[in-house]
Design a protein around this nucleic acid. Structure first.
Ligand SMILES: NC(=O)c1ccc[n+]([C@@H]2O[C@H](COP(=O)([O-])OP(=O)(O)OC[C@H]3O[C@@H](n4cnc5c(N)ncnc54)[C@H](O)[C@@H]3O)[C@@H](O)[C@H]2O)c1
Ligand SMILES: NC(=O)c1ccc[n+]([C@@H]2O[C@H](COP(=O)([O-])OP(=O)(O)OC[C@H]3O[C@@H](n4cnc5c(N)ncnc54)[C@H](O)[C@@H]3O)[C@@H](O)[C@H]2O)c1
Lengths: 221, 221
DNA sequence: TACTTATTGTGAAATATTTCACAGCGTTAC
DNA sequence: GTAACGCTGTGAAATATTTCACAATAAGTA
């Protein structure tokens, strides 16, 4: 039993990416892989891959590299909850429905066990197999199901209240799709997934790319 | 006419956030703001805000801070295209439809001018005011509309082909929602918006939070 | 067996990012 | 008028992250 070496947010993001890439590789029948190969897939450097994997505790062999299967296992032990983790969704609108279909579809580590919506017409339905409750039952259902992580897809004006209620109900991790920053207490991790800001970033760098690179001919192939 | 001081990806992300926060502020009637106030909203430091704003070229006054309105203008001149920018969407499924409703709804800088889907039953429809074309018309429509940025929401297996076609059609910025890494030529900027990886990150840090902090009582309020 | 080769794990260097700290400057108060 | 205040812009220090470089090592070869 030893304390985690404090893994940086950036490293966790890359470890999750490695696992995804390794999963593809495994399904293609690949048994082992070298750091420089994984680096090429992840668009990073071999040294970075090795450095990141130090945090995981899994060791490869100089001759064979890393066992794809074992490395996925080691990453999963680090990244995943021991049991399949239940997730809540608040806001079953256009985005919420897409999320339900996405997370229902795949045999994922995560299952959306409860959804909440203020629209009485939606309460009581089951969307993609997930029951929809009224927001008044938030605390009760979250406690009963043992849910610790939630996704927020309510209108921007409702997000602050929703996030506060989730924190009160004992949630410790929140993925917020509403384009507003909200306060959370110590001990709660919140991440913002803001699609328009992503699009702004893409548009910005698209323009600077265009300005600085003439070699679009690389496409010729 | 002077060359941009090469703004880092992280800085651009924060500048976009500042603009969003300033927009909220402006609509609340706020006229000016100090770096430490903006920092508090953005969960950063005052020094970081000032450093970031150096890249924008806008200067505040020691007495009044920054004019909210003028700063939004300066950020927009840096971040935005001179004209409202047209965006393409490929894949009008569950996620694609949500995106169309989202970007149609707001008087955004970005307008989704064309959508593409392989399903013949969807071709010819207008979803949220956006026409849906067949994938065979990708190059033609993108050229005609002068589109430079695209969002990809097709199934994972189709993403590589779709991205390649977009690059060939002259797109220089791509926001990819499909959970696969794909190759793009020099001169094209691609960003991955991977929701399951975001959720994994949230679940991971939710657990480490829980382990390290007892002061959930901060919620008491 | 001994030699060759290619890779890993990691200390140390290099680089990128963030924070510190303070000179300089409008504004306000007297 | 001028002193005091609290801010901005920025060089320099501190910190975080990435890359370099190499000893250690396992496998293949003869
Ligand atoms: N649609 C997208 O693709 C998209 C993209 C990026 C961001 N977003 C953001 O995600 C959020 C949801 O977007 P949407 O398009 O699904 O909106 P939507 O209006 O279609 O859905 C919002 C849902 O939230 C429910 N709701 C409202 N208040 C609630 C409350 N207090 N508790 C529980 N449920 C409540 C409504 O009944 C509705 O079903 C918005 O903040 C939006 O800005 C959406
Ligand atoms: N639904 C979500 O909330 C969600 C969340 C995260 C990621 N994603 C990813 O986004 C992508 C789309 O998800 P979805 O739920 O909308 O799937 P979906 O199956 O509902 O929609 C996919 C759409 O793409 C179209 N399509 C297929 N091949 C095409 C091609 N070659 N050219 C143009 N159109 C094509 C299909 O006709 C369909 O309309 C997937 O890669 C998925 O993994 C979805």
């Amino acid at each position: 039993m030893f304390s985690l070496p404090v893994i940086s947010e950036k490293t966790v993001a890359r470890l999750a990416l490695y696992r995804r890439l390794l999963g593809d590789l495994l399904s293609q029948g690949r048994r082992s892989i070298y750091s420089h190969e994984l680096a090429a897939l992840a668009k990073g450097s071999a040294a970075q891959v090795r450095r990141d994997l130090m945090a995981v505790g899994y060791e490869g062999s100089p001759a064979r590299g890393y066992s794809v299967e074992d490395l996925i296992g080691a990453l999963s032990r680090l990244l995943d909850h021991p049991a399949t983790q239940k997730v809540a969704l608040v806001g079953v609108g256009n985005l919420g429905r897409a999320l339900l279909s996405y997370f229902a579809g795949r045999g994922s580590q995560y299952s959306v066990a409860a959804a909440f919506d203020a629209d009485p017409g939606k309460v009581g339905l089951a969307v993609n197999g997930c029951p929809v409750y009224g927001p008044d039952r938030l605390a009760e259902v979250i406690e009963r199901e043992g849910i610790e992580v939630a996704m927020v897809a309510v209108p921007a004006g409702e997000a602050a209240r929703t996030v506060h209620d989730l924190c009160t109900a004992g949630i410790t991790g929140i993925l917020n799709f509403a384009p507003v920053r909200v306060w959370v207490p110590e001990g709660v991790y919140i991440e913002y997934l803001d699609m328009s800001m992503s699009l702004e970033r893409v548009a910005f760098f698209a323009r600077s790319k265009r300005r600085t690179s003439q070699q679009d001919s690389a496409l010729a192939k």
